[in-house]
């Protein structure tokens, strides 16, 4: 290969590899939505899929078995709220849509904004835990001393594995003041 041809070939490698490197830098950021999508699709790390209310009503109810659903509440220390489920557990048939409530109360004398994250355990149940409505989809603001009941409408999909007898839903509320969005 003559010198000029080699130089051109080197430039080509430089250009191509730089494109790949730039692409991989972008891919690093792309991992964020990819991860989110995978988590929702497979119920990884307790991420549960939202479902349209109309769609949920069409699912046939499996009357042959009952599953106990437990509700838990955690408040991060930096959020001065009391937060608890109104009922701690209930038995449901897979396929039926139920509504439960959590209450949150701002114990402090200042306006406060919270954001909840949700976890469903065991892992294999997570993907079958469908919600049509949840307070965790957006930030919640509470005035000083304000108390609020917040609904969760959910359904256990009949495809839930038969060996799951108990499902636990846990919410953790964080102080979202630093990330507050005006509603």
């Amino acid at each position: 290969m003559d010198r000029e041809a080699t130089r051109r070939a080197n430039r080509r490698v430089l250009r191509n590899t730089l494109v790949v490197a730039a692409g991989m830098f972008g891919f690093g950021f792309l991992l964020v939505p990819i991860y989110g999508a995978i988590c929702t699709a497979f119920g990884i790390n307790g991420q549960t899929a939202a479902i349209e209310a109309a769609q949920a009503d069409k699912v046939a109810v499996d009357k042959s078995r009952q599953v106990t659903v437990q509700f838990h509440a955690i408040v991060n220390d930096k959020l001065p709220w009391a937060f608890r489920p109104v009922v701690s557990e209930m038995k449901v048939h897979p396929g039926e849509v139920r509504t439960i409530y959590y209450t949150a109360e701002n114990l402090s004398g200042r306006d406060s904004v919270g954001q909840a994250t949700h976890s469903v355990t065991p892992d294999k149940a997570a993907v079958h835990f469908k919600k049509t409505e949840c307070f965790c989809y957006r930030q919640q603001a509470l005035k000083p001393g304000e108390r609020k009941q917040m609904p969760v409408r959910f359904m256990l999909h009949p495809a839930l594995p038969k060996d799951v007898h108990e499902v636990t839903l846990t919410y953790t509320f964080f102080n979202a003041a630093a990330f507050a969005v005006s509603n």
Binding site: A21, A22, G23, M24, F25, F27, G28, F29
Partner: peptide, 11 residues
């Protein structure tokens, strides 16, 4: 290196 160092940079 070309495949993963940019991912570290993104991280």
């Amino acid at each position: 290196l070309i495949a993963v160092m940019p991912v570290l940079a993104g991280c």
